[in-house]
Design a protein around this nucleic acid. Structure first.
Length: 484
RNA sequence: GCCCCCAUCGUCUAGCGGCCUAGGACAUCACCCUUUCAAGGUGGAGAUCGCGGGUUCGAAUCCCGCUGGGGGUACCA
């Protein structure tokens, strides 16, 4: 076997939203290719015309780009092996299929879908494995020619050897063996002239000189068919590495019914691409030193296929959220301001002001979409009628709280220039004088000024919105409190 | 049914025959810090390494069986 330059690929179907599982495979493919000075290819498997969704290719490409996993070659990127869309490669598959028929590794089949469905039903009823019964294999060449001439709809099937077994090596799973008699004569070319994946995938992997097929384990059982095909054509087999499949909480394969599988959803929620990539890298793979937070570049340097685990991990959103928080906190204020922009469309906040208040909420954000809610108190005066005084300050009766806040307000107004340190001193002595816990007075002020019992540090908040405005809110809050 | 893959705390995982009375991270609980929330710090609880047999002086680590889970089984990918 000759050493080849490293070329990896993902081959998704354009059937809808870009799936997180595809991105997972893309991450390993991209990292592996890039680390070995190879190429990462995006190829579109659109041979099932019934499931095609317009715009899906663009979304796929956008998702990859957003995650910084852009392909080196692909339908929207171009490349020396174009076209990268299977529906544009039909003549290639026809030629290959014919070649197979000629060499005896394939044959024409004229069975109708109805007959095949019935056959399958019968076999299932008898608890037999579902196998094509090969009636068309035994057609004489005269009969075949006759039907071909008559234009009878037909497919091309792969002829599986009766005896022996198919063995191949998987970099993650080791040696895998299938007995030939458990395999069936799969259709390679459909009657609509499109290939099935059983033909298109190995054909394109070969033609595009893919060296490492790194993809999800759900594909493992179709590998023996590829091996047979590679042998029939005399092609050199790529290296296989089957990644574990991502799972739902109930351990079934991750699906959109039970999980958010669309990359777009995560993007709209305000997950950072770096966080998603880091999180994904931790599913099935672990840093040799046990690190949890690391960059794509570091991942790529350290990645070896042997270190990937075999069992399918559950996609744990809780950990993703934590990871996202870590990355948000690492951002500079300017960067954060930039990233937060798409989530602030309804509120207009001047950039300088935004950069002043952002540090106060930064460590409280888990996802970017929380930013508008988090920033609201900085922009919008609270509604005095709904202030949660009663639940936030349980130890002090409301009329007394009102008096306390009035005294605090007076103290604040007495300051020539409002100053956080001085004000805090006043608040503490005032609390002591009243016989309150300082926290209760602070909480009363907080509720009046921020409208909530949870907020960034009170005085930093006041400085951000301006003392005058804080005073204004204080007065409004006090007015909402009962006098007796 | 048949084929293939898999099996360590709730979750992600470390572990590749003795260093394991099984380590880390998320989540969870407590405490500390503290004007609240968050962040951070410390500590706790949490895994008879799915079960049963072997092999070995010695097994989470190797072998076999069972059980459980997942995937595949299409003129889907």
């Amino acid at each position: 076997m000759t050493a080849r330059r490293v070329r990896t690929r993902i081959a998704p179907s354009p059937t809808g939203e870009p799936h997180i599982g595809n991105m997972y495979a893309a991450l390993f493919c991209k990292a592996f290719a890039e680390e070995h000075d190879g190429q990462f290819i995006l190829r579109i498997e659109d041979t099932d015309r019934t499931r095609y969704v317009p715009g899906a290719v663009q979304m796929l490409h956008d998702a990859l780009t957003w995650l910084h996993l852009e392909p080196d070659e692909g339908p929207l990127t171009g490349g020396p092996f174009a076209p990268y869309t299977q529906s544009e490669r039909l003549p290639l598959y026809h030629q290959l299929a014919e070649q197979l028929v000629t060499s005896g590794h394939g044959y024409y089949c004229f069975c109708t879908p109805e007959r095949l469905a019935q056959l399958r039903a019968e076999q299932e009823a008898r608890h037999e494995p579902s196998h094509y019964d090969r009636v068309c294999l035994h057609l004489s060449s005269a009969e075949v020619q006759e039907r071909l001439r008559a234009g009878v709809p037909h497919t091309v099937r792969l002829r599986i050897p009766h005896e022996g077994s198919v063995t191949f090596d998987d970099k993650i799973r080791g040696t895998v063996t299938f007995d030939a008699h458990t395999l069936t004569d799969h259709i390679l070319l459909k009657s609509d002239g499109y290939p099935t994946s059983h033909l298109a995938i190995p054909a394109d992997d070969h033609l595009m000189e893919i060296s490492h097929v790194i993809r999800a384990e759900e594909w493992l059982s179709s590998v023996p068919y590829y091996v047979l095909l590679y042998q029939a054509f005399g092609w050199q087999l790529p290296v296989f590495a089957h990644l574990p499949v991502l799972r739902n909480a109930d351990r079934s394969k991750m699906s959109k019914r039970k999980n958010n599988t669309s990359v777009t959803w995560y993007r709209n929620q305000g997950f950072l691409p770096e966080a998603i990539v880091n999180f994904l890298a931790l599913l099935g793979w672990s840093h040799p030193e046990g690190k949890e937070v690391f960059s794509f570049t570091e991942f790529r340097h350290l990645l070896t296929l042997e270190r990937i685990v075999k069992s399918g991990p559950i996609f744990d959103t809780k950990k993703l959220e934590w990871m996202n928080g870590v990355y948000i906190r690492q951002l500079s204020v300017a960067e954060l301001a930039e990233r937060v922009q798409p989530f602030l469309e309804t509120t207009t906040i001047e950039r300088p002001y935004l950069e002043r208040i952002l540090p106060l909420v930064q460590e409280r954000l888990r996802v970017l979409s929380e930013v508008s809610t988090a920033l609201e108190p900085f922009v919008q005066d609270p509604d005095p009628t709904t202030l949660p005084f009663a639940t936030a300050v349980k130890r002090v009766p409301l009329p007394e709280l009102r008096q306390g806040l009035e005294l605090a307000t007076a103290a604040l107004e007495q300051l020539i220039t409002p100053d956080a340190d001085q004000f805090e001193e006043h608040i503490r002595t005032l609390a002591a004088k009243l016989g309150w816990k300082a926290g209760d007075l602070f909480m009363g002020l907080r509720v009046a000024i921020t409208g909530s019992s949870a907020s960034p540090p009170l005085f930093a908040f006041c400085e951000a919105i301006g003392w005058e405005r804080a005073l204004h809110r204080l007065h409004a809050g006090i007015d909402a409190l009962p006098t007796r």
